[in-house]
């Protein structure tokens, strides 16, 4: 029963990423639920979004407190939010950073996957170099290291639901799946 929490800043596309994950699971014939943290979204402020994936119909309509994975769209959030909060033991953190997975100061007992999704997205012209839109790229890394959904399903979800620069988003997603680097802390 993978439950995933995504951390981003208002405007970075964390909510869309959580929906794309749900779409990817749906493409695989599974059940999925995606919801934003129901707040007063403001551009730039830390936001979270959630995805629940399972093989049976989802009856639970409560929030997610102990996710299996956290996906962090922006490494600067590490200073503002405890991205490891509530993570199950051995849980996965996928993070957009130019550092290595061991250099982030995350607590031990976690699996940390690092990928420079910002550089990959910027290379594909997604957002600007200073403020790249990394939501599709980081999903590629997440799919590659989590096994929660396949990379193919994520790519299909992007192609079905992302109308703007679809192929650049898909290419960034694929690229991040290759470049992601994992470490067990």
């Amino acid at each position: 029963m993978p439950e995933i929490r995504l951390h981003g800043r208002g405007g970075q596309g964390a909510a869309l990423a959580s929906r794309l994950l749900a779409e990817a699971a749906f493409i695989e014939g599974r059940h999925a639920q995606s919801f934003p943290a129901f707040g007063l979204e403001r551009r730039g402020a830390p936001v979270t979004a959630y995805t629940r994936i399972q093989d049976t119909p989802i009856l639970n309509h409560s929030k997610i407190y102990a996710p299996d994975a956290a996906v962090v769209l922006d490494a600067t959030l590490l200073k503002l939010a405890n991205v490891a909060e509530g993570l199950k033991p051995g849980g996965l953190v996928v993070i957009n950073t130019d550092k290595g997975p061991g250099e982030l100061g995350l607590p031990s007992g976690l699996r940390v996957a690092a990928v420079n999704a910002g550089a990959i997205a910027a290379e594909r012209g997604l957002g600007s170099r200073l403020a790249p839109i990394v939501n599709t790229a980081i999903l590629g890394a997440f799919a590659a290291v989590s096994g929660a959904v396949s990379l193919e399903s994520v790519l299909e979800a992007i192609r079905r639901n992302v109308a703007f620069r679809t192929e650049d988003n898909a290419a960034a997603c694929e690229r991040a799946a290759i470049e992601v680097e994992t470490a067990l802390l």
């Binding site: 929906r19 749900a22 749906f26 059940h31 999925a32 639920q33 995606s34 919801f35 129901f38 309509h61």
Partner: peptide, 10 residues
């Protein structure tokens, strides 16, 4: 509100 209105499901 939100629990259904803004939650995506199959």
């Amino acid at each position: 509100a939100f629990i259904l209105s803004h939650t995506s499901e199959v």
